[in-house]
Design a binder for these strands. Structure first.
Lengths: 210, 210
DNA sequence: AGCACTATGTAACCTATGTTACTGAGAACA
DNA sequence: TGTTCTCAGTAACATAGGTTACATAGTGCT
């Protein structure tokens, strides 16, 4: 755990803080698809990602989802932070996109470290900044882009986060995360295939050039 | 200034902090429509709202706008905070919705007070929390709601923020903030009038019951 | 092989929203 | 008063995207 923490956060935090994290943090490994946070749940701790990726999803009143963004190595969940401080319910769902390693920090330490460590303050504020901007870009995409552009961006992100050109999802799953319908996504994917940008297979997509 | 600061922030900040704010803050009054922040600009200070309201807008690549949310008395602009810390450009535009009084805090104090005052830390984190949730709700509305619902919510918000049932905007202006077109908004407003929820006049709308 | 299940392809259709164009009604002003 | 501008009402039309329905092709199991 020491080694992994230093690799991901060594350049961000001073040694004293790293040591504190080692003392109070709980190391956790979760498989792909593991649900870390459910909507409406109270959050017990703040996660520091060591490796892997977590997808953050929003849900409408009918239970349909919408992918907001991914959290990756060296990042944390801003929603968790405020939920911890304010003791409010989670407004989002968090699911591991792939196998993920993380360290959970107890709530009360968050506040304590904010007063104590400058690097921690920067990390916390920086995380908020990143997240707010991330949500804004998601919002841009929904408000300003058509579905074909959103799909292309979705595929690009997926390729980047998973670091491979093969996307192991069905059209149905993709439609779900984009808050669209399977038929529409199939239609658009077919168009992308005709343009030579992807090749389609059963239950997976090969991304050639987007 | 002392009186107004205490009224708006007295219950949030300890006296020592109030005094510091009085020493370094600059009092400012801006008229309705005044542009406080432009997209791409660097932000010089962090605003604390004493009275009035500021609307925060996002712009697409073609220059069309989208209303994100309002900032009101006792609140601050989270975007400014992070821009101050990170010295990054603004991703949003801020325009006074009505006559607004505010106090500008110099950048470097932000960091200093975060270490020094617990109430400041809570205020800063709380602001982020509120904003992040606010943006999420805006996003919900865009992703999940149809235009008629969005329009009703827009009118409700406008009535609440301005504290009067008369909305002094043209259909064109409303269309602009909702990122729609004038004809569509006229159509939907007419429908609302037929339902007895509003009455339409030239350049203003009377809200009866939404 | 035969069967059931799931993923995908595709056509036909519906609706919300956007676009263009034209109208008349008020407002501003010479 | 006449002219010009802005604002709003409305019709006609285009299109993206959602819905329903059905066909076909893999996949896995017996």
């Amino acid at each position: 755990m020491i080694q992994e923490l230093k690799t991901s956060y060594g350049h961000l935090f001073e040694d004293a803080l790293i040591n504190e994290i080692l003392q109070v943090g709980t190391y956790k490994e979760v498989p792909s698809g593991f649900k870390l946070i459910e909507i409406g749940a109270y959050i017990k701790g703040m996660p520091l990602l060591v490796s892997g990726a977590i997808k953050i999803l929003r849900e409408d009143t009918d239970g349909n989802e919408l992918l907001l963004y991914y959290i990756e190595k060296g990042e944390t969940c801003s929603m968790s932070m405020t939920c911890c401080v304010g003791r409010t319910k989670s407004e989002i769902r968090a699911i591991a996109e792939k196998e993920t390693k993380l360290i959970m920090i107890p709530v009360q330490k968050m506040e304590e470290w904010t007063a104590k460590y400058k690097s921690w303050r920067h990390f916390v504020l920086g995380s908020y900044h990143t997240r707010l901007n991330e949500v804004l870009h998601t919002l841009d995409s929904i408000a300003f882009d058509k579905m074909d552009e959103r799909l292309v961006n979705y595929l690009k992100e997926k390729v980047r986060v998973n670091n491979k050109n093969r996307i192991d999802n069905t059209h149905k799953e993709i439609a779900y995360e984009l808050h669209s319908s399977r038929v529409v996504i199939s239609r658009l994917l077919k168009k992308l295939e005709r343009l030579g940008k992807v090749t389609l297979h059963r239950s997976h997509i090969e991304v050639l050039d987007l």
